[in-house]
Design a protein around this nucleic acid. Structure first.
Lengths: 146, 146
DNA sequence: GGTATACTTGATACAAAATATCAGTAAAGG
DNA sequence: CCTTTACTGATATTTTGTATCAAGTATACC
């Protein structure tokens, strides 16, 4: 069992919810998905190993994980919601408005900013999401050629 | 006509799309909605004044505005996507995992961070979204009392 | 101002995604 | 092992979003 998955399952138990086989399988699949996946794709992954697990349970588990702050649904391009793992602190995305490509980046100096805000509002931050929207290098060139 | 709406409509024209009555009405309603609204609610608002405008057109206009980077769909609690206006540079949200309250804050020192990233990736940033997830003051107290 | 053209619109039908329900099942605590 | 209560999963249903296509309208050109 993955350590990351274990951590999330503990969080579930600590909040008074039960540790079930379905939840174990779903959380494990979620962690293995690298943290970017739709509910339906996650359901498919889970059912490869445990075919008896229903779609509904996957949706419900994701809802629970949202409530616990483990996961956050976002739109990525078009179609269904993508769930991203927030348990590791944060996500940093560069999102191109034209090609909808998502690039991830690391950036820790943002931490300073957050600390400041947290103090001001007396808010207990558990994770964050920073999205920078615009045009990636390639799409920007196309634009300027028109 | 609102200046903000005017600016968005200009952006539409500058990108080779037409300035139509439907788009004017939709953009105006969007700006008046304070920038947090679902597609269907927006359609309702638009149709109060212009009942002939179809739901489909609202969806299509929002799609166009996404492409232009004017708007960004996010999940807020449950149900349909909420569209937030990105035209004024950025959004800064504090989102409580427990009560799902969304507080907005201003924070400009984040600009430095973004500049750095933009250079590194040669990415042309037009707007940004920074979400800090955790527990608000009130919910944090409830937690520690348990 | 009139006309041609291509873009835009809106009614309808359709597909996809998410939710409600409820009988059956399994986890936790004794 | 037994009881209680939360959880599950098949199904049906609602909600949300998309495809289609004839009719309409904005723009460019004359």
């Amino acid at each position: 069992m993955d350590r990351k998955a274990e951590k999330i399952l503990n969080r579930i138990v600590q909040n008074g919810y039960r540790r079930t086989n379905a939840r174990q399988a779903i959380v494990t699949a979620l962690v293995n998905s690298a943290g970017h996946i739709t509910a339906d794709d996650l359901a498919d992954n889970v059912r490869e190993k445990e075919p008896h697990i229903g779609r509904m349970t996957v949706y419900r588990t994701l809802e629970l994980l949202c409530e616990l702050g483990v996961v956050r649904p976002i739109f990525q391009g078009t179609g269904a919601a993508h769930y991203i793992l927030m348990d590791n602190g944060g996500h940093h995305h560069l999102i191109c408005n034209r090609c909808h490509n998502v690039m991830e980046f690391e950036e820790c100096s943002a931490a300073m900013v957050m600390e400041k805000v947290a103090k001001q509002f007396n808010f207990h931050i558990s994770s964050h999401l920073l999205e920078l929207h615009g045009l990636c290098e390639e799409c920007n060139e196309i634009s300027s050629h028109q």
